[in-house]
Amino acid sequence: MANPWTGEVALVIDGERRAMKLTLGALAELEDGLGAASLVELVERFESSAFSSRDVLALITAGLRGGGLEVSQAEVGRAEIDGGPMGAARAAAQLLARAFMVPGQDAA
């Protein structure tokens, strides 16, 4: 079960429920790999719905790795994700939001 208070988000991928979490290392990789000048830029992409499928794939992969699953972006790209592309996008946005959640904020 994912613990939202620690920044975790649940995702069912290939029929298995996984807890995703963004670590500091994953966030640094995301900045570099996605060509974002800062994490704020990445957050703004999601807030304005200007994110790409590449952004979603990178976030899901980083979150799964942070949750302890050794997986590549290619493997995630071929996986079946509950809710399809929109389910993946929602999970990615929630993962990014929880990474910057201030203690005491609603974790829903």
Rank of each mutant, 00 (worst) to 15 (best):
A28F: 15
F100D: 08
K21Q: 08
V71H: 00
E44K: 10
W5N: 14
T61Y: 05
M86K: 07
G35Q: 10
G15Y: 07
A97D: 15
L22K: 03
P4R: 06
D106Y: 04
L22V: 04
E29M: 08
L95N: 10
Q94F: 06
T61M: 04
A10H: 03
A93R: 12
G83E: 13
S49D: 15
R45C: 11
L34Q: 02
I81T: 07
W5G: 13
E16P: 06
A37Y: 06
R65A: 00
A50Q: 15
Q94H: 12
A2Y: 02
G77D: 14
L39N: 06
A89I: 11
R65Y: 02
L30C: 08
R98L: 14
V43G: 04
A50L: 10
S52L: 10
R17A: 11
T23H: 00
A36F: 01
E29D: 14
A50N: 13
V12Y: 05
G35K: 01
A74D: 01
V40S: 11
D14K: 10
S53H: 10
A93I: 05
R78M: 14
A50T: 05
M86C: 01
K21T: 01
T61V: 05
A79W: 15
E47S: 11
L96N: 10
M20K: 03
G63R: 04
L22H: 04
A26Q: 03
